[in-house]
Design a binder for these strands. Structure first.
Length: 211
DNA sequence: AGTGCGATTGACT
DNA sequence: GTCAATCGCACTA
């Protein structure tokens, strides 16, 4: 690796360097695994909020549980963008969900980001959430979005460059990744498309499902 | 125009 | 453990 480059990135706090799109696996399941251990960075007027991604779910091509299953609509069109864009939608009238688009342009698929281990901006997260406990700040997709103040205005955003919301490389440590069924769906419920950082207390969902 | 339904959460028994 | 809130959106007519 280029020496100057490695020094420069090494100086960045917490591996806060954007993920290049070329590094993102095109395949949805590979992307879901790849995103475990990466950083999610939110830049707000009051400061930077970031965390390590510890839980994801893949919504693959032809997946009846996926929002893209019945084709492109005004709501889900971001799923059909190049990989590495934000797809944000409102679930149950109250919780926003953040996804990363996957596959090639024109193909509707993505990865739901379900939980974060808070790293920076804990106090801002606490204010956004109206909650104290570190463990609960971003455990669950709706809580995560609330903690990072993510809503539909960020839909379609490119997560591969620094901006209001972006993906950072993190430490590049090999993660011990577990696998299970996805949470809260009825169709295609048997498929093992949920991935999580094994042993992390910041992972959501029933522990019993964990492999 | 009307209807049904969630990729959830928080409150409560 | 159970359960209702809540509302944008897709689908039917």
């Amino acid at each position: 690796m280029d020496r100057a480059n490695s020094l420069k990135s090494g100086r960045r706090k917490g591996g806060r360097r954007p993920v290049a799109r070329i590094e993102l696996p095109t395949d949805t399941v590979s992307l879901a695994r790849y995103l475990i251990g990466r950083l999610l960075v939110r830049e707000l007027p009051e400061g930077v909020v970031s965390g390590r991604i510890v839980e994801t779910e893949a919504y693959v091509v032809g997946d009846a549980a996926g929002h893209a299953y019945r084709g492109m609509t005004l709501r889900n069109r971001s799923l059909f963008l190049e990989r590495g864009r934000a797809y944000v939608y409102l679930a149950y009238g109250s919780s926003y969900m953040l996804n990363v688009s996957s596959e090639a342009p024109g193909i509707g698929a993505g990865v739901l980001i379900r939980a974060l281990e808070p790293i920076e901006g804990v106090e801002i997260m606490q204010r956004n959430r109206g909650a104290e406990r570190l463990r609960d700040l971003a455990r669950g997709p709706g809580r995560l979005a609330a903690a990072l103040r993510i809503d539909r205005r960020l839909d379609g955003l490119d997560l591969c460059c620094e901006g209001p919301l972006w993906l950072g490389r993190g430490d590049d440590e090999a993660a011990d990744i577990g696998r299970s069924t996805r949470i809260g769906i009825t169709r295609e419920a048997a498929r093992l498309l949920r991935f999580y950082l094994r042993g992390s207390p910041f992972v959501s969902g029933p522990r019993l499902l964990n492999e």
